[in-house]
Write a protein that binds this DNA or RNA. Structure first.
Lengths: 144, 144
DNA sequence: ATAATTGCAAAGCGTTTGCACCCTG
DNA sequence: CAGGGTGCAAACGCTTTGCAATTAT
């Protein structure tokens, strides 16, 4: 079983009105130690590889519920396959390394002024936005 | 048949090394008159509704080929279902109205400095990015 | 106790592919 | 006329769902 379980995760489950089942904690644990984003299938495969008993449908249902409550982010960079990632609670964006697929959260957004201006130019009011930056991290740059 | 066919589209097909078949022109025509973004299925449904003869597989293959050559954009806001949209040739972003789903292209990007700075903070070099802004257009604001 | 959750297997759905026929260049 | 393109239907892969058994509260 895991050693990285964060009490924080339990609180978040509770706050979302979700029962703290063994399976949900497994999913959260696995997400917590994963710096990349993962698909439901991959997550399930890993848990099974670790000898855990959990059904694929449960992984899907759990990720769906967590996403509904904002506990995980759903990244859709690969159409036809959703990726999930445990994420901070505030507004943030992702920086993905095209070499190793590592994902870093950009804490500060700082785009609000730009957004408001760009939207206003089209007579829109911006209500939400999503930025995904692709780049190369230091180690992948060296490797290349 | 269409009245909106743009000669421009033929050039783009040719430049991409794709033969100008009846089906491809149908797809391009339909995309050209569509301000929203559409799924492959929806596009196919409309063409058939117009009495056109074209197979679903061809629509998929065509959209895939057009996307490969940058003639259409692939938007993945709905995970598990790709949306396509004929798009300008340069770098740009999309502003989507959450009321009517109308999509507007934002010509200017103007994010490069912000991006470079944000990436550098994490020791990354930004190579690409994608921004999707959701908002409300003027008429949907009035309706609300 | 009892309502939520799980697991399995089957169903759903969007997308892709094999193959014979057709058409563009 | 040769090779790309098309249509159909079957195959695919990811995701969802029905239902009986299980489990958290």
């Amino acid at each position: 079983m895991s050693t990285t379980r964060q009490p924080r995760l339990l609180e978040r489950l509770e706050a979302a009105g979700l029962r703290a089942t063994r399976q949900r904690l497994l999913v959260l644990d696995e997400l917590a130690r994963e710096p990349h984003d993962v698909t439901a299938q991959e997550l399930h495969r890993r848990l099974r590889a670790n000898g855990e008993r959990i059904g694929l449908a449960t992984v899907y249902r759990t990720l769906g519920a967590l996403a509904d409550h904002g506990i995980v982010d759903t990244l859709a960079h690969a159409p036809a396959e959703a990726c999930y990632r445990l994420c901070g609670e505030g507004h943030h964006h992702h920086l993905v390394c095209s070499g190793c697929h590592r994902v870093v959260e950009l804490a500060e957004c700082g785009l609000d002024d730009w957004l408001a201006a760009a939207a206003a130019r089209e007579d829109f009011v911006a209500t939400a936005h999503r930025v995904e930056v692709t780049g190369l991290c230091a180690s992948c740059r060296r490797a290349a």
